[in-house]
Amino acid sequence: MATDLPLSQTPAVERELVFDMVKRGVWFAPVILLVATVIWGPQGTASAAVAIALVTLNLLLAAAGLSWAAKVSPMALMAVSLGGFALRMGLVCIVLLVLRNEPWINLVALGITLVVTHLGLLFWELKYVSASMAYPGLKPTADKEAVVS
C-alpha cells in the first residue's frame, strides 16, 4: 500500500463541509428550538439544545480527526475513521447516560432532535455537494486556472 499518496496536498474538505453544516445548523437552531418548545414545552427546548450541541460537536470532532489523519497516512485515515466512530458513539452514550434522569430532559425530544438535526444537516449539505461533484475537493485553484488560460 502506497503511503506516499499526495493526501496531504488535498484541501481539508471535511472541515469545509462541517463548517458549512455548522453555519447552517446555527442559523436553523432557533427554528428547531421553537418547534421543540411548541411540541414538548420547556423540557423540549433544553433537550433540543443539548441535541443540537451534540450533533455539532460530533461533526466537528469527525472532521478534525479525518482532516488530521488524511495528512498523516491512509492507515491513519482508516484507524481514525473506525476509532473515531467508536469514540464519538461513546461520547453520545456518556452524555445520554448522564442526562437521562435529569428532570429538565425529555429523552424522546432529545432523541428525535438528535436524529433529525444530524440527517437534516447532511441532506442540506448533500444538496450543495451533488450540485457539483467538484465541490469542495476539486475546486479549481489559482494555479490550475493559470495553466488552463
Binding site: A70, R88, G111, L114, L122
Partner: peptide, 23 residues
C-alpha cells in the same frame, strides 16, 4: 479531494443509523 468528500458524507450518513439505534 472528491473521494474524501464522498467518504465523509458516507461516514456521517452511516453514523446516523447508529444514532437511531442508540436513541
Amino acid at each position: 479531494g472528491m473521494v474524501r468528500t464522498t467518504m465523509f458524507l458516507g461516514i456521517a450518513f452511516t453514523e446516523a443509523l447508529a444514532l437511531f439505534g442508540f436513541v
